[in-house]
Design a protein around this nucleic acid. Sequence first.
DNA 1: CTGAAAGCGCTTACAG
DNA 2: CTGAAAGCGCTTACAG
Lengths: 330, 330
Amino acid sequence: MRNVTSADVARDSGVSRTTVSYVLNDTPGAVISEETRARVRASAERLGYTPSAAARTLRRGRSDLVLYVLPDWPLGPAVDTLLDHLAGELAERGLSLLVHHLRAGRPLSDLWRTVIPRAVVGFTAFSPEDREAMRRAGIQVLGNLDDADPGVEGTFSTSQRSIGRLQARHLHRTGHDVIGYAAATDSRVRQFVELRLDGVRAECAEAGHPAPVVQPVDLTLDSAVSAVRAWREHAPPVTAVAAYNDEVAIALLAGLRAEGLTAPGDVAVVGVDDVPAAQFTVPPLTTVSQSLDEQARRLAATVVAGLEGETATPSPALGETLELVVRESA
Amino acid sequence: MRNVTSADVARDSGVSRTTVSYVLNDTPGAVISEETRARVRASAERLGYTPSAAARTLRRGRSDLVLYVLPDWPLGPAVDTLLDHLAGELAERGLSLLVHHLRAGRPLSDLWRTVIPRAVVGFTAFSPEDREAMRRAGIQVLGNLDDADPGVEGTFSTSQRSIGRLQARHLHRTGHDVIGYAAATDSRVRQFVELRLDGVRAECAEAGHPAPVVQPVDLTLDSAVSAVRAWREHAPPVTAVAAYNDEVAIALLAGLRAEGLTAPGDVAVVGVDDVPAAQFTVPPLTTVSQSLDEQARRLAATVVAGLEGETATPSPALGETLELVVRESA
DNA sequence: CTGAAAGCGCTTACAG
DNA sequence: CTGAAAGCGCTTACAG
């Protein structure tokens, strides 16, 4: 059963392939009678014609794919939401999403050169060479986390620094002068840890308070307990801590409990993410919500705007998607 | 700056395009001197030649894409792992991953007809028509959750029923006769709820115990409290409950606490997933781990085996990736 | 208004 | 051992 091509449609509707192409693509300049158009469309429909992406790509020199480059660290639930929104918006415009997970020994350039996507969207920034090469090839490049490029900074992702600032500010406002920072140990997430911690530091400096006392915390009780002890023994003692995320914060809460301490009485704890479990911890966890859904929507909008050639409307200040959820732990 | 084509490489190395193609593709029958091969490869390298995916696809009649069809419900962290492994394995074979999120008004057939992927991998089963049509088009079809097709059943996903059985069995063994089931209310997840609950029912029936008392639980304290009350008021009273997943179980634990009850003393609770927070709840949560990593690896292996034409080695019994993690809540 | 023809870049019988 | 040539299915100047 051979595939049905535009030639089949042409034959069936008694016109040339040119006409079929004009009709089906609604080519602007083409002057074709409504009657002919209807006939062509009916044929296409009846024969179940679907244009070949390969042929179209070969002809046009660029495909209908958008390459989404994922980083080498765990993104959590964010990806799902992101991919979903993005794929949805793209589908409405006849585009499809190609995902690539960055990894050692899997150069990005081979892929984009081979596939010639309409746009490349990166979770992390691209190397200047990659970026330049893609631009030259007429591929739209949308990066992320790219602090060097002010035009792109934070277009998609909430500024990690703002997260740290928000945590520290809340802790200061609730009467804590010397605060700790619980840093995740997963090396793949280092970039984020550094950025968020930077925010905490900046806030402390501006408030005239001492710099945060950093302790590594992985997802074990032992590690949480050690961190708690270190903070308590610190002089002056740490009375509140900003955790890298809710998982770390939840471990911390368990660490406090194991030491016979409570939050926020002995040590206040603030997390990041507002995971579902955060409302059910003992005590309920105060945290920073990143509004991933909202961010996903913005990313999709930005990509689409870029594709349609609009000047990327500078997205609203990042902090806007950030929200402090005050419960009981801090 | 025109793209470099095989003709450029041919010119540069002084051979025909035929030879370039033979060398670069290691075409089996081709007899070409080692010296010529080296020359061609050097030229390709130097010119930065990357074959056009579009042209190759047009010629071959099928692309180097594997279409991964995601369902219309939240997959959680699973997707990330799955995509990562799959994309990795595929990349090693020169294939790329195209994701499509199923949604109303976005027919799958348009996409696969347009793109002609090497294989289509589905998280959920495909309709018989889609499946047949794809097969006829020479596309490898790998479904999931497809209980109707024994050859495919559970190839990728752990049997949802086994999860329920495992939960119920543990509860029975620890002395509970009448158990409850906490069903998630998110409609997108209904399919899973039904399957897992089925497993619980089957286990109860076989053990000669009463059928599970089902209560809906969403992620609010109120809802958890209502469920707890209903179970306590049930005659005979429910002394243990299997929760749809850890999130629901964690809400339940909070509901018990709010009612002045404790687990497992008053009501035992067992979850599913072993999320990081599970080890830090009060009390630590007993749960079923699905070994998503292991499953992702298997999915990738199955897809790759299928692509290489091997008869899909029937994967080992599903239950094997399931593991009961006994902590304190049950 | 509509058609014949070129050409996108590749692979692969076919003929030396 | 190697090359000339056809053809995959489309779009788009170009010529009526």
